[in-house]
Computed example of a mutant assay.
Amino acid sequence: MLSLHKKPLHVTNVQNANCVVMVPPKEFRFNEETARDNEFQHQVNLSEAEVKQQTMDEFKTMVMLLRKEGVQVVEFDYPESDVETPDAVFPNNWFSSCSDGSLYTFPMACENRQQEVKPDALVTALEESGRIVNQVESLESYLKEGAYLESTGVMVIDHINKTIYAALSQRCDREVLEDYAKRIGYNRVVSFQTALPSGHPIYHTNVMMAIGDNFCVICDEVIPEFERRFVIKSLAKDKQVISISLDQMNRFCGNILQLETINGDKVIAMSQSAYDAFSPAQLAQLSTHGKLLPFNVKTIEDIGGGSVRCMLGEVFLPTRVNQL
C-alpha cells in the first residue's frame, strides 16, 4: 500500500456513489467531546441497553433497505481498541475515496474520534467487497498543527463541477481544505462563515446543505448575507436550489444524500425526521431527482447529533466485481 503523496491518476466526475461504507453503532453513546461544538446532540432518558438495542435496530434496518433498493453497502465492523469510539457510526468524517483508486484519511478534531481512523482494516473490507484501492493518502500530519478537516462532514462536494463547498469552523481548517482540493485536482473551493442563533458556527457543513447531480438543499439563512449571495449564485448555475429553514435544518433536512443503485437509478437517502419536516412542495421537487428513501434513525440523531448522510461513507473506488 502506498502512503507517499501522488498526483491524482484519473478522477472521473461522477456525482453519486453506488456503494457506501456503514459502521455498526456497537460503542455508540452520547459523546461529551463532540458535544462541545455540536449543538445537534441531546441527552436522552434511555438506559445504556435501550440505546444499544434501538441504535443497532436503526442501523440494521437502514442497511437492509439500502441493499434492497440496490445500493451496495460495505459493513465495516471495525476492530475495537482501548479507547471507545462512540461516533464510529458516522464514518464519512474520516475518509474519502476517488475513482482513481485513492483513499484519503483526515485529521479529526476530537481525540476519541481520531481513534476511528483505521485505514488498513477499511482497505481490507473494501477489497473484500470487490473494490480496488491503489493508494492510501493521509492528511493526519496536520494534527500536529491543531488543524482539522473532517472529510465529507465539512466538505459538500459538487463532483461534476470539481467544486468543494465548506463552512469554516474548528473542524474545517482553510489550509487543510485547500491542500485536499489540490491533491484531488478540484480547482474551486467555496468556503464561507456560518452562525447559528447561539452565535456559534455550524459544526459540519453537511447538516446545512446537500448537493446532488442537479439539485442542492441548503439552509442559506445561517450564512452571512455578503457571502450568501455568492454561494447561492454559484449553486444556481446548474442546480435547482431548495432552501430550507433553520427549523428544517435542525430536523436534518440538510443531511441527505443522493446515491445510485447498481442499475443506475437515483435514490435520495434521508431520515424520517427530515422527510416529515420537508414541505409537500419540497418533497415533490426532491422526488424529481430520485426515489426518496426515509429511514428512522431517531435515536442516533438525538444522541449523536448526526443523521443519515453522516452514516454513509461514499465509495467511488473502481469495482473489481459487481456484488451487493
Rank of each mutant, 00 (worst) to 15 (best):
V20W: 09
T194Q: 10
L324A: 14
R29S: 04
N206T: 00
W94E: 00
E84W: 11
Q15F: 11
G306H: 10
P79Y: 12
V63H: 06
D238E: 06
R229W: 14
I244A: 00
L149K: 11
M22Q: 05
E314R: 03
N31K: 01
L66V: 02
L312G: 04
A109I: 14
I232R: 08
A281P: 11
V74T: 01
K291H: 09
R228V: 02
E150A: 03
Y142N: 02
S169K: 07
Y180P: 05
A125L: 04
A281R: 15
R174M: 05
A284I: 07
M64Q: 15
F59W: 13
N18E: 07
L4D: 08
G146Y: 12
N322V: 11
N31F: 03
P294F: 09
H159W: 12
I132V: 10
G305Q: 04
F230I: 13
S129R: 08
P119K: 09
N134I: 02
D173P: 11
P197N: 00
M155Y: 06
M64S: 15
C110W: 15
S138D: 01
L139A: 00
G313S: 02
E111F: 12
C216V: 13
T299Q: 06
M108L: 05
N16Y: 14
V71Y: 08
M311C: 09
F40C: 07
T61Y: 14
V136E: 07
S47Y: 02
E32I: 03
T85G: 01
S287P: 02
R228F: 09
A277M: 04
N263H: 13
C310V: 00
Q323H: 15
N18A: 05
N31M: 03
D77K: 07
Q323L: 15
E221I: 14
Y275K: 12
G290S: 00
N214P: 15
H10W: 15
E225M: 13
V231F: 06
A181W: 10
T124K: 14
L66P: 02
V156F: 08
S47D: 00
T55C: 07
R29Y: 12
N187A: 05
G185A: 01
A236C: 03
N255M: 04
V51N: 06
A269G: 14
T319C: 13
F295R: 10
T61Q: 15
F28L: 01
V74S: 02
E32W: 14
L283S: 06
K6H: 11
G264H: 06
V21E: 08
V44D: 00
Q323M: 15
